[in-house]
């Protein structure tokens, strides 16, 4: 058992534990903070997969932006007052569905049985080259998507009384 496998199992436990906490926690704020724990473990997994840039982006976007936005909205909607509503009548069906999906995916993965064990590293330079040559058009479209989402968010969240 080599070191990277030990690190992988540690990160997996943190990641899955945090994820189970997110979907089980009764407190909304705890769920948001546990999501941060899980996502930072995913960032560690990206490092294990030699994707340094993605690990950095993961910390910046999820740790710095998304969790903060979620916490702001939790504060603004006073969602803690709705603690009791975590009881959903279809939770049993949800467990069965989630378990079924996992079994299906795991069976497909094991049947496919990929045997690759060699990881390759992709440098920042190659990634940037690819992003601005082969993927230049989708990259520009992504910026347009962000702009539209920004304007849409402002329009939706704006007070109507101002008009």
């Amino acid at each position: 058992m080599n070191l990277s496998l030990v690190v992988f199992y540690l990160l997996s436990v943190v990641c899955l534990g945090g994820a189970v906490g997110v979907v089980m926690s009764r407190n909304v704020v705890h769920a948001a903070l546990l999501l941060l724990v899980s996502l930072m473990a995913v960032s560690g997994l990206y490092l294990l997969l030699l994707a340094e840039f993605l690990a950095l982006v993961q910390v910046l976007i999820y740790g710095g932006a998304i969790t903060i936005v979620v916490l702001f909205v939790i504060m603004l909607t006073r969602a803690q007052e709705f603690r009791s509503m975590s009881a959903n009548p279809q939770w049993r069906l949800a467990i069965v569905t989630a378990f079924g999906v996992f079994v299906l995916l795991a069976a497909a993965i094991i049947k496919g049985a990929p045997t690759e064990t060699v990881r390759q590293s992709l440098g920042f330079k190659e990634l940037g080259n690819s992003l601005f040559t082969d993927w230049a058009v989708p990259f520009e479209v992504a910026s347009l998507v962000l702009l539209v989402a920004l304007i849409g968010a402002i329009v939706i969240a704006r007070e109507r009384d101002v008009e």
């Binding site: 979907v23 909304v28 979620v70 975590s86 959903n88 279809q90 949800a94 996992f102 993965i109 690759e116």
Partner: peptide
């Protein structure tokens, strides 16, 4: 590769449970 695939499948299933079993839109 299979380790990461199984982990990914487990995380996805947990997400499915969360989407189906929660009532709070934020969660």
């Amino acid at each position: 590769l299979i380790h990461f695939q199984i982990l990914s499948a487990a995380l996805f299933s947990i997400g499915i449970y969360g989407v189906l079993a929660r009532r709070n839109a934020v969660l």
